[in-house]
Design a protein around this nucleic acid. Sequence first.
DNA 1: CTGAAAGCGCTTACAG
DNA 2: CTGAAAGCGCTTACAG
Lengths: 344, 344
Amino acid sequence: MKRPTIADIARLAGVSKGAVSYALNGQPGVSESTRRRVLAIAEEIGWNPNGAARALSGAPSHTVGMVLHRPARILGVEPFFMELISGVEAELSARSYALTLQVVADQPAEIAVYRRWWGERRVDGVLVCDLRVDDPRIPVLSELTLPTVVVGMLGESAELVSVWSDDAAAVVEAVEYLSALGHRHIARVGGLPELRHTAARTAAFEEVCRRLEVAPALTISTDYTGEDGARATRRLLSSPRRPTAILYDNDVMAVAGLAVAHEMGFSVPADVSLVAWDDSVLCQLVHPPLTALSRDIPAYGGHAARQLLDVITGLPASSVQDETAHLIPRGSTAAPPSATGRGA
Amino acid sequence: MKRPTIADIARLAGVSKGAVSYALNGQPGVSESTRRRVLAIAEEIGWNPNGAARALSGAPSHTVGMVLHRPARILGVEPFFMELISGVEAELSARSYALTLQVVADQPAEIAVYRRWWGERRVDGVLVCDLRVDDPRIPVLSELTLPTVVVGMLGESAELVSVWSDDAAAVVEAVEYLSALGHRHIARVGGLPELRHTAARTAAFEEVCRRLEVAPALTISTDYTGEDGARATRRLLSSPRRPTAILYDNDVMAVAGLAVAHEMGFSVPADVSLVAWDDSVLCQLVHPPLTALSRDIPAYGGHAARQLLDVITGLPASSVQDETAHLIPRGSTAAPPSATGRGA
DNA sequence: CTGAAAGCGCTTACAG
DNA sequence: CTGAAAGCGCTTACAG
């Protein structure tokens, strides 16, 4: 099957290729009747624009790129990314943009992908996740002047636009809630420490613990997997200064931590309270259902996509703060066991 | 920043653009010394191939497309798709292919995407999931002669290549196992009935139940969400002829079903046995851990990607049968309660 | 309002 | 082994 081109349409309509191009793109320069005839013929012979030819003439690709660098085994399990992606997709597809995803093994590979996409004009812009402290991607993206929106906290680098959520405030809400219940030993099972939002959460956690005289503000670092979350929980629950409450940096680890607590013979929330970050159905399916810091992740992705489209189309865009995660108390949190109970 | 082109390289190297092209692509037609010089200059000035120009000259896009049509809320929660995609990605990125994903609302939209991709030469081939009985996508893809690999059972349509798994055999294994434990009332919470693999599972389920004199072979249809799974479980467990075992078509519904059973005061597995299909960490995190039909989904995706690359590059490729899901018995299955127990 | 033409950055026969 | 040239399918000034 030979693909029809605008030359075919031009011949059939008896006009020039240029006129066909104007008609097809809704540009001025052709009469209404010509435009209608051209569109009808295009429809009839099943014409589709050749994206390569358009791109070569400088037209946008109508594609947004996203490079994911977390290990594939996380992507398959953690609902966060798929929810984020589905939100991004919803916004993009409503504006007829496509999303190109690429999973990479490390950060140099990620940077190489941006350079290649830029060189190939494959994408009109990119969405960048999981910013690190001193992130090497930022200068590269600035240098390439590739339209970029950062999903998450950007910090000082004011040259890029970001959509972010106040993780510090959410940490404070969770710890204040646990403290109000009477907890004095709160531990945290944190995410990858080199990520900016992890650093922000850790700092906020330490500060609020200090302020409320909750001690020690122990954070164990993990890679977000259920395995790591289980390991950290096992370590915390078998330590001499066993915490009475644990705050997890994602839902998968919190669910795994719940299983570990049960397996070690602890009752939740009687012996230990658990709080998850991000509230997928996972949290509601387990027993007891998990108290969680909840936020609308698809909406978050949608907002990021909208910002990026604004940047791409040259509209004024500046960083926006998205909804702060809010605590949804469920069955996994309660007052700590009395001081006469077992343990420390 | 102006993007360098092969014209720049040609000027710097003092050769023609054609020679540069041959050198860059490892084609014969240039001396070894010229090739080295050209490559060094390209590297030095940071040249990247312009994909649009290559595509316009008929070169492949080195991109594979995948259209997902399930509702976004499923994608975010069901591990199956992300695991499949990560397996596809792993295989593609090892061969320097990218994956373009597009989420659509319905099947006409999906077909429109294929036509557009084909017209725009955006992808070299596509991976098609969730085949339906009498699937309208098949004739369109054949007509477009767009390289296609079907993930899942293809049935009679022999004109396309597929990678499939014998779901019928897996159903039989699960039911035989439950029957051997003594179950005589087994129900199934099935997926979307219009999908081919659902139909195959349903047919196999009915046949094996008939053969083993297990009755009735009731299948409740769902949309794969936890909500639907919970609803179906509630209905089954409150029916006068309450089943002693339930087989779910995915893991999310099985986990939701477990929560419902607990909430209704049933003990698992003492009162009712549950079996999940697909064995993500979810199944191991809940209490009791779920007996599951397990298979290596990333590998499945990887095989599909490899088949597609073979089709694209013109290598001989034919449908291959992938691993059959195998039963992993865990704590959610046991002998049924004795006839004197409560219920039917 | 319309036509003829250049140009985007490559690839690939075709001559030398 | 190398150079000059056509062509891929569009877009977009530039003349009419």
